[in-house]
Simulated assay, not measured.
Amino acid sequence: MSKTRRVISLILALGSTVAGTIGSIYVLFFSAVISFKAASGAGLLLGVGLIWLYSDFIDATPNDQQR
């Protein structure tokens, strides 16, 4: 994986995780009416961001690195 691709992937994965976290906190604590669609969408975005971070950066194997 090239360095440019890794940087772009990290930025997008962190952005998804942060947006999902902020959305979840807002819907669960500050919203007047808790919408199931909004809560599930924020949770899905958070889950996708965390899985993306884990698979690309935390659980990365040496074979993923460019030679």
Rank of each mutant, 00 (worst) to 15 (best):
A42Q: 01
I58R: 07
L28N: 14
G47V: 06
S24M: 10
V27D: 11
L12K: 06
Q65H: 06
V33L: 12
A32V: 12
I34V: 15
V7T: 10
A39D: 09
G23P: 00
M1P: 07
I58N: 06
F29I: 11
L44V: 09
G23S: 03
L46F: 09
T61K: 08
G49R: 01
W52G: 06
Q66A: 13
S9I: 05
D64W: 05
F29R: 15
F30L: 15
V18P: 02
T21F: 06
D64K: 01
P62N: 02
I22H: 02
L12M: 10
I22V: 15
A13K: 02
V33I: 13
R5V: 10
V7F: 09
V48Q: 01
T4Y: 14
I51M: 12
T21K: 02
I34Q: 13
I11F: 11
V27P: 02
Q66P: 03
S9V: 10
L14I: 07
L46K: 05
K3T: 15
M1K: 07
G23A: 06
M1C: 08
I58E: 04
A19Y: 10
I34L: 13
S9Q: 09
I51V: 15
S31M: 09
F36I: 12
T21I: 02
T4A: 15
I8E: 10
V48M: 06
T17G: 02
F57L: 06
D64I: 03
G43D: 05
A38L: 14
F36R: 12
D64T: 05
I8D: 09
T21L: 07
W52D: 15
A19V: 13
I22W: 00
D64N: 02
S31A: 15
F57H: 02
A32Q: 14
M1H: 12
T61G: 04
L50I: 11
I58C: 05
L44G: 07
L50M: 10
S2T: 14
L53Q: 02
F30M: 11
G49H: 05
R5L: 09
I11V: 15
M1G: 13
F36K: 13
S31N: 11
G23H: 01
A42W: 04
D64E: 08
D59K: 12
A13G: 07
F30P: 04
A42F: 00
R6K: 12
G47S: 08
S24G: 03
V33N: 11
L46W: 06
S2Y: 12
L46T: 01
D59V: 08
K37V: 14
L45N: 07
T61C: 03
S40D: 05
I58D: 03
